[in-house]
């Protein structure tokens, strides 16, 4: 729950409420498996060798830690206004508290059904908590926790991410938490 220290009621009432239910713009594809494995020099044969994937994972899967990428919007697409962002609740909170900067400090991911090429992933975001004003070496702002639940097109749970974000204003800019 939000601590009793300046959280506007219209923000506090969003705690625990699913928001921004959405389905991915595109189906899970193997190119991102290869890109992810290349970026991390990951030679796990379940991602590179179809015969191993067939034996071990009953066919190709995406690396589990790619969970969030399937819901990340294109940087631009026709008809979209402005920069497209994932984790909209995070950006809503930055705006609500007028905190221009933010970082993610903690992230817990639980992995359930494997994500497979061709899957169409959906998710929803739930604001879990907001801290009171805090000052760190980055600046002054607030911490918040956001859970994101991911399902596939069969409504099977494929994973849950829990993010702790810190929205802040650099102290040289003058703190206005």
């Amino acid at each position: 729950m939000a601590e009793d220290d300046g959280v506007p009621p219209e923000v506090a009432e969003l705690i625990g409420v699913p928001q921004y239910a959405q389905t991915a713009d595109f189906a899970v594809e193997r190119s991102y498996t290869y890109n992810t494995c290349a970026a991390t020099q990951n030679g796990n044969p379940i991602f590179w060798d179809d015969s191993v994937a067939e034996t071990v994972t009953n066919g190709p899967i995406a690396p589990p830690t790619t969970l969030s990428l399937w819901m990340r919007p294109h940087f631009w697409q026709p008809g979209a206004a402005g920069e497209q962002v994932a984790l909209k609740v995070h950006f809503d909170l930055k705006a609500a508290f007028d905190l221009p900067e933010a970082v993610m400090t903690d992230n817990t991911i639980t992995f359930h059904e494997p994500v497979r090429p061709g899957d169409r992933i959906s998710n929803q975001q739930v604001l879990k908590s907001i801290s009171g004003p805090k000052t760190t070496k980055l600046g002054t702002g607030r911490f918040w926790v956001i859970d994101v639940e991911y399902h596939n097109q069969r409504d099977e749970l494929v994973g849950v991410e829990s993010y702790t974000g810190f929205g802040y204003r650099r102290d040289t800019e003058g703190a206005r938490p």
Binding site: N44, I46, V52, T105, N107, T108, I109, F111
Partner: peptide, 11 residues
């Protein structure tokens, strides 16, 4: 390859 991640918590 048979190792299957269940949970990761990172800070």
């Amino acid at each position: 390859p048979k190792g299957r991640l269940g949970r990761m918590t990172f800070r």
